[in-house]
Design a protein around this nucleic acid. Structure first.
Lengths: 203, 203
DNA sequence: ACATAACTGTACCTCCAGGTCTATTATAAT
DNA sequence: ATTATAATAGACCTGGAGGTACAGTTATGT
C-alpha cells in the first residue's frame, strides 16, 4: 500500500480538533457533522471518507485524546510529589476558569451523554478515565511504597476519589457558572489526602 | 377564571414523569417530544398545549423536580445526624445500582448537556443543585452550632464538596458501568467528613 | 342550558441531521 | 507513463425533529 500523504492527514486532524472543541462546548448530540465541516471548510465527502459516520468521528476523537494523553498531554504527566498533586488539580481549576466556567470536562461531557446503546463510545470514554485514574493511582502507589502513606490507604480508591471529586466539581461549577464549588471540592479533597501522609519513609 | 379540571392535569403530570425518566435514561437532546407522546399515548396538541415547546417541557420538568424536593422527595429530607449523612450518600449509591450503573444523576445529566445558549434551563438546574446543597449545608451548620464540628470547617464548602463528590462518583460509575468508583468516592468523603467531628458540644 | 375556557385529534409544514452515490482530482510507487 | 489508491467535490435522498393550524370536544361557572 502507498504511504498516506501529509495533507489529507492534516485535514482529518483539523476535523478532529474542531470536533473536540465542539463536543466540549455543546456536547456530542448538539454537534452535527455539518458543524464540523463548517469549522474546517470541508465537505461531506471528506467527512464520510475519514470517519464513515458520526459515531466514527466521536470514536476517533476519543482515540486521539487517549493517544495524546499517552504522550503526556492534557495534564497526564506523572505526579511525583504532593505539590504535584496540588498542581494536577490546579490545572483543571485554571482551565475551567479560562472558559469562564461554561464548560466541564471535555470527556466527562461526552460520558454523561451516553445512553445504553452506545457501548463502543462508552468504552472509549472509559479508557480515557481509566488512564487518568491510573496516573493518580501510580502516585499514591509510589507514596505507599515509600511508606509516606498510611497503611490503610488504598491507592486505587484514592485515585477514584480524586477523579470523582474533580469531575463533580467541574460539573457543579459549570451549572453555577462559578468556580467556587470546584475550588471548595478540590481544597477539601487535598486536605483529606494530605492527612493520609506519613512523615516517615525512605529518602 | 375557571379552576382547571383534574384529568388534564393528570395528563400533563404523566408527560412530565415520562420526560423525567427519558431525560434520565438518554439525556435531553436525545429525547424528542415524540418520545414523550409515545410513552404517554398523547399527541402533539396536548404536548404543545401544555408545554409550548420542547424547552418548555424541560423547564417544567425541572420545576416539578424542584417542587418535589421542597416537599422532601428525591432524598431531600433534612439530615440530622452523621448516620443521616451516610444514609444520604447511601441512597444515591443504591439508586445507581438499581439502574445497573447505566444512569447518573437525572439533574446532573441535564446540567452536563447545557450549552451557553440555554441560560433559562441552566438556572433551573442550578436551583435544584442549590437546594440539594442547602440541605447538606444546614446539617453542617447545625453540627457547628452544637460545637460538634471543628472550628475551621466551612459548612458551605463542605456541602459543595459532598455534592461534587457525589456527582462525580455517579458519572464515573456510569462510564465504568460499575459502582466501585462511586463507592470509593463516597467512602473516602465520609472518612474525611467524620474526621472533622468534635467530640464536645451540647446535648 | 349555554357561553366560555380548557383540552384533544389530526393534518400539515419546514428544516436539517445523517448518510449515499457518482464522478473527478491528487499522490506515490513501479 | 501507468496504475492503484487516497482524497475531494457536490448533487441527491430519507426520516424525523420541532412546530403550526384549525377544527372538534369536553368541562365549568352562572
Amino acid at each position: 500500500m502507498s504511504a498516506p500523504s501529509a495533507r489529507p492527514k492534516k485535514t482529518k486532524h483539523r476535523m478532529i480538533l474542531a470536533a473536540m472543541d465542539l463536543f466540549h462546548a455543546q456536547g456530542v448530540r448538539a454537534t452535527s457533522p455539518q458543524d464540523v465541516m463548517d469549522r474546517t471548510a470541508t465537505g461531506k465527502s471528506q467527512f464520510y471518507h475519514h470517519f464513515g459516520s458520526k459515531e466514527g468521528l466521536v470514536h476517533e476523537t476519543l482515540q486521539y485524546f487517549y493517544a495524546q494523553m499517552c504522550e503526556g498531554q492534557f495534564n497526564n504527566q506523572p505526579i511525583r510529589t504532593w505539590k504535584g498533586l496540588e498542581a494536577w488539580f490546579g490545572f483543571f481549576v485554571t482551565v475551567s476558569k479560562q472558559y469562564d466556567c461554561q464548560r466541564g470536562c471535555p470527556i466527562g461531557t461526552i460520558g454523561n451523554e451516553l445512553d445504553p446503546a452506545q457501548e463502543l463510545i462508552r468504552q472509549d470514554v472509559n479508557a480515557v478515565f481509566t488512564k487518568a485514574m491510573a496516573n493518580l493511582e501510580r502516585f499514591f502507589d509510589n507514596q505507599k511504597e515509600q511508606k509516606r502513606l498510611k497503611v490503610g490507604a488504598d491507592p486505587q480508591e484514592l485515585a477514584q476519589f480524586c477523579f470523582a471529586t474533580l469531575q463533580g466539581g467541574l460539573l457543579v461549577s459549570k451549572v453555577q457558572r462559578h468556580p467556587q464549588a470546584l475550588e471548595a471540592a478540590v481544597k477539601n479533597a487535598l486536605i483529606y489526602l494530605k492527612s493520609l501522609r506519613q512523615s516517615g519513609g525512605a529518602a
